[in-house]
């Protein structure tokens, strides 16, 4: 199954990149201390390859979803507020969702605790947004239209 292979390759990439080591992430954010530029190199490599392959694939495969999808949306406060909350949690732990799932495979109890806390945060956010069902965008993980 190609989805499994994609996840496996993605996870190996995270480990090779050192993104499952929290001090690499916290070090990147520590611009006034001992700045560690590695995360910048990870992002440059990932965005460079993905951006080029998306555009090549677009030209070759007419059935490929349009890159402009999803269409530009208004920059609602939820985007900025949510991203700010995520940034604080990311900096406190050095963990974002990808490395936390990979670390479950390490058998790390700390990753388990982080995962449970993350699920609580997701449930809380979904309960909060369920009341006013604002237009849900498709930036992350949703099927491409």
């Amino acid at each position: 199954m190609l989805a499994l292979a994609s996840g496996l390759l993605f996870g190996i990439g995270l480990v090779v990149a050192g993104m499952t080591v929290p001090s690499n992430v916290i070090g990147f954010l520590d611009v006034t201390g001992h700045w560690n530029p590695n995360l910048g190199a990870v992002m440059a490599g990932a965005i460079g390859v993905h951006a080029i392959l998306l555009r090549i694939g677009q030209r070759r495969d007419a059935r490929s979803p349009a890159l402009s999808a999803p269409p530009p949306r208004r920059l609602e406060p939820a985007l900025v507020g949510g991203a700010a909350a995520f940034g604080v949690g990311w900096a406190l732990t050095g963990y974002c969702p990808g490395p936390s799932i990979v670390s479950l495979g390490f058998g790390s109890p700390a990753a388990g605790l982080f995962g449970v806390a993350m699920l609580l945060g997701i449930a809380f956010a979904q309960a909060l947004t369920a009341s006013h069902s604002a237009s849900v965008s498709v930036e992350c993980g949703s099927p491409a239209p």
């Binding site: 993605f10 995520f86 930036e139």
Partner: peptide, 20 residues
């Protein structure tokens, strides 16, 4: 770990995206 995890889950859900 607990506070960070909750903030990561909450924030990525509200803003609909994370580092990836």
């Amino acid at each position: 770990l607990a506070v960070g995890g909750v903030l990561v889950g909450f924030g990525t859900t509200i803003s609909n995206g994370c580092t990836s």
